Computed example of a mutant assay.
Amino acid sequence: LSVNSPLEEIMQIYVSGVDGKSITLNVSSSQKVGEVLDMVEDKTGLMKEQAVLSYAGKNLDRPEQTLKDLNIESSATLTLSMRLLGGHCQVPCGIFDDPKTVSELKEACATIRKAMVQINELSKSVTPLNFNQMTRWVMTKEEHCKNIITTISEYCLCQRVKPAGAPKSPFKTDKDFVDALKAHHAVMVCAMKAKQSVDIAVAGNLEHAVGDWQKMYLPVEEGTEAKANL
């Protein structure tokens, strides 16, 4: 994203990421929190729906506020964190009973993370043998990312997720249906970004998205709903 006006002074701010690394953003004081989140998503792969920015110990939870409104000046450091799993489901919980699919996607996530770790390690010394092994790990990562996207799109969305009111639909309201679509879409986007990256934080984003998605495909633990509604 570009700053809002060519006449505005551009300043640099820093964002300390979930992996401990910092990124630099060129912004203007009139840019909004929502726009900064878009920039963070572009640089880190962490979807803005999952991202939480904070400054001086306070969460920046109003996307329409500007940096000037929040007294964020040049060289300021924002902290980036991920929304925690747990509590009441944002998606309808336990509507599908499919632990096998959940297990397959979690195994794929673990393989993707392992591939990224191996690629980063092997790249420290680029010998012909290491180059060959890196290539094999890249192909493995690509295959598992593709499998996740295919499972979500061709199986989950085509066969399991049906609009509210449709025959055999598990959704009671349109909102539940839309929330489910968002959760599935988040997994596909994170898998696509994992294909393009060897950053371990991107693997973490994928695991987080699968963690949200799986709530629909595993039985609700006894008492979970009651506790969530207290």
Rank of each mutant, 00 (worst) to 15 (best):
H144F: 12
V102A: 04
K182I: 10
L122I: 00
I149A: 12
V27C: 11
Q90F: 04
I112W: 01
G204R: 06
E49N: 03
T77I: 01
A180C: 10
Q50I: 04
A108M: 12
H208N: 10
V189L: 11
P170H: 09
R160N: 02
M192T: 04
D174G: 11
G57H: 07
E73W: 10
N147Y: 09
R83M: 03
G223T: 04
T127H: 08
G20P: 13
G165E: 04
D69H: 09
L78K: 04
A164W: 04
E41M: 11
A180L: 01
T111W: 03
S29F: 09
V126T: 05
L7S: 13
Q12H: 10
A56W: 06
D179N: 15
G45D: 06
V15P: 00
A166C: 14
S22H: 10
K172M: 14
A228Y: 01
V178F: 12
F131P: 05
Q118N: 14
Q133K: 15
T101D: 00
M82V: 02
N130Y: 07
D19R: 09
L129I: 11
I23V: 12
W137Q: 14
E121R: 13
T151P: 03
C145K: 05
I95E: 02
L7A: 08
D199V: 10
K182N: 14
M216D: 00
E225C: 06
N130V: 07
L53K: 00
K215L: 14
V189C: 06
V126S: 10
K68H: 09
K58F: 03
D176Y: 00
Y14P: 05
A56Y: 08
N147L: 09
